[in-house]
Computed example of a mutant assay.
Amino acid sequence: MTENQKIIKELKPFIGQVWEKAGFHSPTTIQSYAIPAIVENKDVIAQSPTGTGKTLAYLLPVLNKIDPEKKSVQAVILASSQELVMQILNEMQKWSEGSGIRGASFIGGANVKRQLEKLKKHPQIVIGTPGRVLELIKQKKLKMHEVKTVVLDEGDQLLVPEHIENIKQIVKSTLSERQVVLFSATLPEQVIHIANELTKEAEVIKVEKDETIKADTVNHIYFLSEQRDKIKLIEKISRLEKVKALVFVKDIGNLTVLAEKLQFKQINVSTLHSDMNKMDRQKSIREFRDGKTPMLIATDVAARGLDIEAITHVVHHDFPKDINQYVHRSGRTGRFGASGTVISLVTEREERELKKFAKELGFSAEIKRFHGEEIVDPKQTFSKKR
């Protein structure tokens, strides 16, 4: 047994059982660093690329600490979007099987009465959006006096002006001997600065590239196109064989126009943006996840934390505003070493920007074109059939 495998063996037996059932072999790099640190009650500030197993890196040691005999809340996990909250809850339920540990989700916009009913069932782990969690604390419905661990998932999205005060108040409402853990795919300087204020002598873990996951399974390609012609390329991508494509657009206006044009051409797509109600968002994600639609068109805000298995292509319809956004978006495909393709639809100006990103991130972006319904190299020639 390797040192890495021992990390899981040393956790409670129910975790090891689910690990074996899931068919996992060794922990990923972020898991092998973070799990022991969190088990030892250290505060942690961790950065690792999207798709490297960050959720389990904090979830397994948090579950390991929970006393299922106690009826009080012992850990709070905060996330910036409803979708991410629900995904964390699903993972928590999967990994706590047979342990007697209960979790509950609390999100803005949901029925408050129903959420209070959840608290009556005495969850030991609370997973929620900052606004709603703080609201329940202020109403004295959510008691924080036994909370030992606070987790900030996608920390760079939580430590922003709209959430920061709520986060600080939530952390302050817990035990003075609390543990604060922050995870993110990117950690800008200002986020590290705020994270240091919330933590005590935190162990900073930075994984630039996970060597346990073969990253060379993701291809980065691009098509040169005028802005107005990008829709034709999206149309062709939607018709690729066995495609499951997540398409990123910069705002709701662009998304609506693109979706309407595709639907007019009888192309069935799902959409995801922050102005949609909860039911419509869930329906969109479900239809895309189940393969009823080959393409999900989303804004960056709505797609944060979205974890859908087997996404074959991530498409940058609107070019990312910076390198961090490129990393976040692109990490939705090729998760845990699966293969995937990242497609950028770029104008000449954006092509220069993409090449800069590629150089900085250490990959090569290859230009392609369509020949009929196939993606080919631009110089590839085809003989005419007689």
Rank of each mutant, 00 (worst) to 15 (best):
S270V: 06
K292I: 12
S270C: 01
N277G: 09
D280K: 11
E287W: 10
R286H: 09
V269D: 07
Q266C: 06
T271H: 00
V269L: 08
P294S: 13
D280M: 11
I267C: 13
K292C: 07
H273I: 00
L272N: 05
S270H: 02
R289E: 13
F264N: 07
R281N: 03
T293N: 10
M279F: 14
T271D: 00
Q266F: 10
L262A: 03
G291V: 07
D290T: 06
Q263W: 10
F288S: 02
D290S: 13
G291H: 12
S284H: 07
Q282W: 08
V269S: 05
T293V: 10
K265A: 08
T271E: 12
K283D: 14
T293H: 12
S274V: 12
I285T: 11
Q282N: 12
Q266I: 02
K265M: 08
I285D: 06
F264H: 08
L262Y: 06
N277S: 10
V269H: 07
H273K: 02
Q263T: 11
S270R: 01
Q266N: 15
I285A: 08
Q282L: 13
T293G: 11
Q266W: 08
L262W: 05
Q282G: 05
I285E: 00
F288M: 04
K292Q: 12
R281K: 15
K278F: 05
N268T: 12
R286A: 14
S274L: 06
Q266T: 03
R286M: 04
D275W: 00
R286K: 15
S270K: 03
R281V: 08
F264E: 09
K292G: 02
Q266G: 05
I267S: 10
D280N: 12
D275Y: 02
Q263M: 13
L262Q: 08
R289S: 13
